[in-house]
């Protein structure tokens, strides 16, 4: 290859490794703190930071051809598109018919007229849970 290989000093590797270990500790610690809706956001933020450090330093993307960095960022962009537009559905569902936003109530009055069964036609117990695992045996 024509381009020069970047030689990373050992100290950088060690610093990054220490940071990663520290962030793992933070992940564990923060899992004991209930932040409500922010739980998932904080956990994902820490995980993303760690992944970014690994990619930039351990995988040398910081010093490599910037085209590779572009491709990497593009893949994140497509993931962003997927998640954002899917959330446009789940967050705005029920805008016209509010009842479609609710989770399924297996004990609703509608079910009183029907025998409680799952999609195989097997009986479902009073609490509304079907015998899923048993069904899987015969394939």
């Amino acid at each position: 290859m024509a381009h020069q290989h970047h030689i990373t000093p050992l100290s950088i590797y060690l610093t990054i490794a220490a940071t990663l270990l520290f962030l793992s500790g933070v992940t564990v610690w923060v899992s004991y703190v209930d932040l409500g809706a922010m739980n998932i956001v904080i956990a994902m933020l820490i995980a993303t930071t760690k992944a970014t450090l690994v990619v930039l330093f351990f995988m040398h993307l910081l010093w490599d051809d910037k085209k590779l960095l572009t491709i990497f960022v593009m893949s994140l962009m497509f993931l962003g598109i997927f998640i954002t537009i899917t959330l446009l559905d789940t967050e705005f569902r029920g805008g016209v018919n509010p009842e479609v936003k609710d989770s399924i109530n297996k004990r609703a009055a509608f079910y009183d007229s029907l025998p409680l069964t799952d999609t195989h036609g097997n009986p479902v117990d009073e609490h509304g849970s079907s015998h899923h695992e048993e069904d899987e045996d015969h394939h």
């Binding site: 598109i81 537009i85 446009l88 559905d89 789940t90 967050e91 569902r93 029920g94 805008g95 016209v96």
Partner: peptide
């Protein structure tokens, strides 16, 4: 092509906004 997948799902019960 990456931004239009929901047009396969117009009767699926996805949000009207989508």
């Amino acid at each position: 092509g990456f931004l239009v997948w929901g047009h396969h799902m117009f009767t699926s019960g996805q949000s009207v906004f989508s």
